[in-house]
Design a protein around this nucleic acid. Structure first.
Lengths: 188, 188, 188, 188
DNA sequence: TATGAATGAGAATTCATTCAT
DNA sequence: TATGAATGAATTCTCATTCAT
C-alpha cells in the first residue's frame, strides 16, 4: 500500500478516535498526514470511502489477531478461549483502534456493501456455530442470536479490560474468569 | 412541559431516527415541529442540549417501562425476569425509540454530565447487584463487569426481538428462553 | 421583490456581464450585493437557479420593452417595425443587459424548464406568424424557420447598433433601413 | 501534426460537445485521448490554448468545406449559393462539430488574438462584399452589417437543417428555398 | 414569547497545472 | 518526450446560532 495512503489512514484513525468522525474534516486529516488536501481524494473518492477503508483496515487487524494460535475445531472450548483471549489482548494492546472499531460498527457511517463484505468473511465461523449447536455442544438457540450474544460478551469484556487497563497476571486472570462465565452461559 | 418543547423533542426523535443526527439540521427539526427556527433556541440553548434532552427523555421512558410490576427484591430471579421482559416488550413496542437510544449511547453526542446524571439514577440497581454478589446469589465478578454483561445481553435480546419482529406467543417464548440463558450465565 | 433579492440579481447581472458566468463565484456575487454568502442561498437554492432567474428577469425586461406601442395586428408591417425599433432601442439603452441575454441564450446554463416557460409566453407571436404565412402576407416557409430568421436578424441589428453606439438620428435611420431590409426579405 | 496532439484535439471535441466546456476537465480529456494528464500540457500550454486550437481546427474545417467548388467571383449568385449549400451540407454531415463551433463563437472562451487571426483570413470575402455593394449588386448597407446578416442567416439555416435532420431531396429543396430567401433579402 | 431573515465560518470536493522520474 | 502523483487555491453549498421586530 502506498506510503501516502497509509499515512492518510493512520491520520484518520488518530483523529477520528480523538475527535469523532463528524468533528474531523478531510482538511484536518490531510494536514495531519502531511499531504495536500487534494491528495486525500486521489486515494479515496470521498470521505465515506475513507471511513469504509478505515473500518476494513481495523476489522482485518482485529480478525487477524483473533484467529491466531494452535487450537483447531476439534476442541471447541480451547478454540473459543483462544479467540477470546486473543481479542482481549489485541484490544488492550490497541485501545484506540478497538474503541474506534466499536464506534464505527454502530455509527451508520460504514456502507452496507462494506459491512456485507466483512460479514461474508466470517461465514466459516458462523458455520462452526451452526454445527456446534446441531451437535448439542452449544445451547439451542438460533445461530444469529447466539452469535450476537457471544460477540457482545467478548466486546464488553475487552472494553472492561481496556477501561481498567488490566495487564500481566491480572489480565490473564480476568480472561480465565470471563471466558469461564461466557462458556458456562452458552453451553447446555 | 410546554407544548412547543414537546413538539420539538418529538420532531427531533422522529427525524434523528429517520436520518441520523448529523443529517438532521435544527432548521428541519423546527419545521417538522411547526415552529420557527429561532423558537428551538428558546427551549434548548444549543443543538447539543436538545440531543441531551432527547436522550434523557428516551432513557426515562425505557427505565419507567423496565421497573414496573409486582416483583420485589426478595425474589431476585423474578425481579430480573420482570425487568428483562419489560424491556424487551418496550423495545418491541417502540422500535424507533429503542434504536435511537442505542445509537445515542455510543455516539459521543450525549454530554458527560448527562450520562453521569442518568447513571446515578441507577445506583439502587447497582446496590442490589452488589449485595446479590456478596450473598453468593450472582457470580463473583466485579459489579461493573457484571452490570455491563447483563446490560448488553438484554440489549442484544431486545435488538434480536425487534429485528425479527417477534410478538405474541413467539415473543413470550423468546423471553423465557433468553432469560433462562442469561440467568444460567450469571448465577453460580 | 425583497430588497436583498434585487440586490443579488443586480450584482449577478453586473458581474456576469463583466467577468462571465464561470468566472463569477457566488461568494463574489454576495459580496458585490453586500450580503453574506449564505444569504444568496436563502433566495436562490443554487447558482443555477440564480442564473435562471437572471435570465427570466432580463428576458421579461426585453419583452416588456418590445411589445409596447399603439400598433396592432391589423397592420402587420407597422407592428413588426414597432417591435423591431423597440428592441433596438432597448438594446442600445441597456447594452450590458442585452449582451448578457444573448450570452445566456446560448450557454446551456439556463435550465430547459425555464427556457420552455419563456418560450410558451411567446405563443401569441408564433400564432401571429402562422396566420400571416397562411394569409400570404409572409413568405411561405415553416413557422420555426421564419421565426428563427427574424429573431437572428433583429438580434444582429441590435448588436450592430450597440457595437457602433448609434443614437439619435443615426439610430432612427439605421432602424428604417434595417427594418426595410428585413421586411423585404420576409414578404413575398 | 503529432499523433498525440490529434488524439487530444479529437478527445476535446468529443467531450466538449457531449458535456460542455466547463464540465470537461483536462484530466478527462487526457484519459479520453489515452495519454497521461501531463502530456496534454506538453502540447498545449494551458486549457485555454487547447480550446483556442479546437476552435481554429473546427473553423478551418468549416471554411475548407465552404470554399469548395467551381463557381468564381464572376457569377456572384452562383458563388454565394455554392458557399451556402456547402456550409449547410457540412453542418448536416458534422452536426457535433457544427454545434461546438457555434457554442465556441459565443462563449468568451476563445482568445481575442485567435478570433482576430481567423477573422483576418476572411479579408478576401469581405473585399468581395465591399466591391459588390459598391457595384450595386448587393444592398447598400455597411459591409460589417451585411456580413453579419448573411452570416447569421446561413448559420440559422444550417441549424434548422441539422435540428430537423434534413437530407437527400428535402435538404436540396430546403437549400434552394433558403438561399432564394437570403438572396432576395440582400440584393437591391 | 415567537418569528425567520441574516449571518459567515466551515465542509467536501474539484481541477488546472507542475515536476521528479 | 511521456508519465501521473501531488498540489492547494477555489468553489458551491450548509447550518447552528443571533437578533431586530
Amino acid at each position: 500500500m502506498s506510503d501516502k495512503k497509509t499515512q492518510l489512514l493512520e491520520a484518520a484513525i488518530d483523529l477520528f478516535s480523538k475527535e469523532g468522525f463528524w468533528n474531523t474534516s478531510t482538511a484536518r486529516i490531510s494536514k495531519h498526514a502531511k499531504v495536500a488536501t487534494g491528495t486525500l481524494f486521489n486515494y479515496f473518492p470521498s470521505k465515506e470511502a475513507l471511513i469504509d477503508e478505515v473500518y476494513v483496515t481495523l476489522k482485518h487487524e482485529a480478525m487477524d489477531a483473533m484467529f491466531q494460535g494452535p487450537a483447531g475445531p476439534d476442541d471447541l472450548e480451547a478454540l473459543f478461549k483462544q479467540v477470546y483471549v486473543n481479542y482481549v489482548r489485541w484490544g488492550v494492546a490497541n485501545p484506540v483502534r478497538f474503541k474506534l472499531l466499536e464506534q464505527l460498527k454502530l455509527s451508520d457511517l460504514v456502507s452496507q456493501e462494506t459491512q456485507q463484505r466483512i460479514y461474508s468473511e466470517l461465514s466459516d465461523t458462523k458455520e462452526l456455530f451452526r454445527s456446534a449447536i446441531r451437535d448439542g455442544k452449544l445451547v439451542d438457540v438460533t445461530v444469529d442470536y447466539l452469535t450476537a450474544l457471544i460477540t457482545v460478551n467478548i466486546e464488553t469484556s475487552v472494553k472492561y479490560a481496556v477501561d481498567n487497563k488490566l495487564k500481566g497476571k491480572a489480565l490473564d486472570k480476568f480472561c480465565d474468569k470471563g471466558f469461564a462465565l461466557l462458556w458456562k452461559g452458552i453451553t447446555p
